[in-house]
Design a protein around this nucleic acid. Sequence first.
DNA 1: ATAATCCTTAAAGTTGACTTTAAGGCAAGG
DNA 2: CCTTGCCTTAAAGTCAACTTTAAGGATTAT
Lengths: 132, 132
Amino acid sequence: MELYIKEVAEKVGLPAHTLRYYEQEGLLPLIKRDVNGNRIYDESDLLWLEVIVCLRKTDIPLSELRVVVELTKEGNNTAAKRKQIFEKHKEKLMEKQRDLDSAFQKIETKIEFYDELEKKYHNEIENMSLKV
Amino acid sequence: MELYIKEVAEKVGLPAHTLRYYEQEGLLPLIKRDVNGNRIYDESDLLWLEVIVCLRKTDIPLSELRVVVELTKEGNNTAAKRKQIFEKHKEKLMEKQRDLDSAFQKIETKIEFYDELEKKYHNEIENMSLKV
DNA sequence: ATAATCCTTAAAGTTGACTTTAAGGCAAGG
DNA sequence: CCTTGCCTTAAAGTCAACTTTAAGGATTAT
């Protein structure tokens, strides 16, 4: 499978210049080129990009993704280190989960409060009209 | 209850200058001052700050918090609008939840992959030693 | 052949949310 | 009286992650 940058952009949901930017920042392994120097992405590039996109949505820093790429280039003896990076991010995810849960609670309380406030306000208006 | 900035900073887990910054950005209602011009926070300030801190952890923009403060100043007839802002953020939270779930899955897959890779690598090393 | 549409690189600009710096006032303790 | 540590304001600086701009080359469509 061979894809040009625009198709990849489409598939992974990133603008093409962000793909170039990621490459420049060392987040992608060496990307092949065609005779005109245009980037050609293969299946494995796409799979890795999908990991990037998914983890970026939970704010993994580009720097950590870069390190994973560097370690991968170093070889299979770096598996443990790479795993560590993901374990570390998993910890972050668990914290995010807790923050999310608290926020859900807080926001529900607020919404209920505003429902009450609205009710009271409408009642006031109604009473005012009755008094006229 | 009356608290000075340092105590509030301590309680809500923000540096004092961030509290001043938030005030400057219109995220806090009018904060009282003592004779020397130092800020004095009361219970309701603290409660609102706790909402801010909680929702900021899920990346609610300062601008939306500012709007809530402005609407609150306008009066009880703005309850519906304020509620809307929180409903909107709740939608964002639900999206974050989905992103978080996907990331957990992806990361588990990666971790399992690295476990396998490590096993294989150790086996290779072992076989190599046996052959010597 | 000329315009449209892709691609390329390099570099500068933007964004939101702080964070730091600078310059200084007030009050308690030694 | 002087230092220490709190507080004040205003303004400039920082950061990550893009995003935009500029300048230009190659391919395809009319």
